[in-house]
Write a protein that binds this DNA or RNA. Structure first.
Lengths: 235, 235
DNA sequence: CCACCGTCAAGAGCGGTGCTCTCTTTTCCT
DNA sequence: AGGAAAAGAGAGCACCGCTCTTGACGGTGG
């Protein structure tokens, strides 16, 4: 009974998958603005209105692509972290950074969809908040592990944060990265924004021609930021 | 003679200005994607094709808005820096940072146009490179001044950069911020990306709900980054 | 076995877009 | 005053997202 029903549902799932795939390819070549339901339909040999059986609107298709994007980036980051010795915290931080940059450079339009200007009139639904923080979860794990292993420098006295600020940071980030003191969380936040700031600059062409090869500069920046966070090498 | 000629040219300049103004208002309310030449024409009581007498394409209008945006941001940064005691380098750095953030939060759509995903199919012409770096020029001035005043910490031995990297940084950024050693330039670059990374996150809604008020967190982050760059307080 | 009913593709159509072309009107210069 | 240059008006092209209606297909209950 379900077999026959799934017969229909299977072709539906397959078509849905194909739509998303074609859409992603168009996204990769044309960018988010160039994604056109009619073009997807054309490429599938469908009529444009038929697409609406599968995605009620362009925004819904976009949402799917966004969620997929966050998941792809998150997986890349998770893989990079998992492939690094768990007690070498500077290396894990560097692995995460390079994973983010590499993925972004490999999928610039998808990255733009995730971290660029929000699509006008598009409001991200709640479904995106889970996948959206997968990279942050990995980063939080590294921080927590380092803290537990005593491999995180304490806050420097010269730069201690307002205690209220530190505790607010602990409250809002404590779930993702428990046990890490607020001071360190705030430093880590700066490093995190620097990572994504760099990638934004690079993907969006802001530092075009500044360096012959951005890779080494990025690598050095990652080391500097790791030191700012306070990671110490394994004993 | 020129008076009569300017009679026509004056109305042309006036209309051009009005087009840009309406376009900027639409940009502010609708976002870059919602900018429509037809809507601008409607609001002016013109026919859509008449707009093309003033801007040959939508992209050209966008370019004007972009240049204006860079100039507005640059001016805000310059003003903030000029209003700060010239020998208080941490304060000047902080002033620049807050100027960038404040302007971005006040003009989110214009900011998105400058630092968000590039508009698909749009290639920034050469005219933008001048205004584009006005903020960076200010930052470079602060760095150079601090260096000359001996108010910049030298590179820490533990984090010295590859000499080739440092010299490449000096070569590519030396014009904007002369006399600053490459090591420091690389640290400053990290701080700069952190600044814009933060503002990106905030303007694009990425850290929605993370903090009650982002302002103090940003302020602290700016102090941390200033310390990372190596600014020291005036004697 | 078959009639039924839900699912789906197809097509036409609406209002919108950027942009081009032609035609007329206005303005300026000689 | 007359001709050239500039500007506005209008129609039209190809595209877009999206909606509505129509007809066909196919799994399911009687």
């Amino acid at each position: 009974m379900t077999a026959s029903r799934t017969a229909r549902e299977r072709v539906r799932a397959e078509l849905t998958r194909e739509i998303v795939e074609i859409a992603r390819r168009q996204l990769a070549t044309e960018g988010a603005g160039g994604l056109s339901l009619r073009a997807v339909a054309r490429e599938m040999g469908m009529v444009s209105s038929a697409i609406y059986r599968y995605f009620p609107s362009r925004d819904d298709l976009l949402t799917t692509l966004i969620i997929d994007g966050y998941n792809a980036l998150g997986e890349a980051v998770e893989r990079a972290d998992a492939a690094t010795p768990p007690d070498d915290f500077p290396a894990r931080w560097a692995a995460v950074c390079h994973a983010v940059r590499d993925w972004a450079l490999a999928h610039p339009h998808e990255y733009a969809l995730l971290y660029g200007s929000p699509v006008p009139g598009y409001q991200a639904p709640q479904d995106t908040i889970g996948p959206r923080v997968r990279d942050l979860v990995v980063f939080g794990g590294i921080l927590s592990d380092a803290q537990r292993a005593g491999a995180l420098a304490p806050a420097s006295a010269a730069l201690d944060a307002d205690p209220a600020l530190a505790s607010e940071a602990e409250a809002s980030l404590g779930e993702l990265m428990p046990e890490v003191p607020g001071d360190v969380l705030l430093r880590a936040l700066s490093a995190w924004t620097s990572l994504y700031g760099w990638v934004n600059f690079e993907v969006f062409g802001q530092l075009q021609g500044a360096f012959q090869d951005n890779g080494p500069v990025f690598g050095h920046s990652v080391r500097v930021l790791g030191a700012m966070i306070g990671f110490t090498r394994p004993a």
